[in-house]
Amino acid sequence: MTTAIWLHIANVFGILIAVVGASALLTWIERRMLGLWQDRYGPNRAGPFGILQVLADMLKLFAKDDWTPPFADRAVFIIAPAIIMVVILLAFAVIPITPAIGIVDMNIGLLFFLAMTSLSVYSVVLGGWASNNKYSLLGGLRSAAQMISYEVFMALALAGVVMLTGTFNLREIVNAQSGLWFVVPQFFGFLVFSIAGIAEAHRLPFDLPEAENELIAGYHTEYSGMKFGMFFVGEYASIILISAMIVVLFFGGWHGPWLPPIVWFLIKLTFFVGLFILLRAALPRPRYDQLMAYGWKFMLPLALLNLVVTGAVTLAFFNG
């Protein structure tokens, strides 16, 4: 009993630290990889390959004066960056990394994930609003509309997976893919989910809320110090989260031959994180109206079609 509790605690803190650490590390990895693809160096001075750059950035952010602009709404301004950290880290609680590693085995794990991502909107929206700056406000408004819209397609894309497995439990979903990864029967679901995931994490090319060249970093214009750091790390954490969900839902989670489950999971995860960074390097940023039109006029019908076809096929052949 005691062992179980300790194991659980180890699980919790292990994942927590791993995620935060990985997110921090990702800031460096991204810059290096962007440098690679864009034919430049990236941070390469501090430590081997510049890996200590992470530490340097962290020190800088911590050391900075924790300054709140006088015109800002103080309470909300402080809460906003915390929200994204909290909800993203909470969402990791339901991700089954291996049969042994994973914090809770919730029977509504998938819904919990959706709930957390939908709450992450507040971080951006409130941050933008509390800054009391018109660029930030614009960024906040954009993110509210964008994230609410893409949440719809995201949930609809996942409904296909739920139909195939008949459960919201992520662990059971992974187990259901021991034979065939759902990326095959749910390819369109995967496509929609990935794109919506990028939008939810407001990563390039869907980083309209923080578009540097029009909104001067948008919602986090006024942020500095560790509050900015939380936004920053939160964004990378959400990349990892989306990648992890893709792995869990569509690429069989820890399943794979020869290698231990944790390794398989990490390999797949790394692949998708890399893919996201590559997308950032490769794609231009659309206009805001293009983004919304794309979502409602292409993604939504696609997701609905996927849903209908999946439902029809399930009903016809499995009749569960």
Binding site: L111, L114, A115, S118, V121, L137, A144, I148
Partner: peptide, 22 residues
């Protein structure tokens, strides 16, 4: 519970915030 969080807290309230911001 999940629906309450997703829809109520996650969508309807965002609309509120959105409008108040507007």
């Amino acid at each position: 519970a999940a629906l309450e969080a997703i829809t109520y807290a996650g969508a309807i309230m965002v609309l509120f915030v959105f409008v108040v911001m507007m």
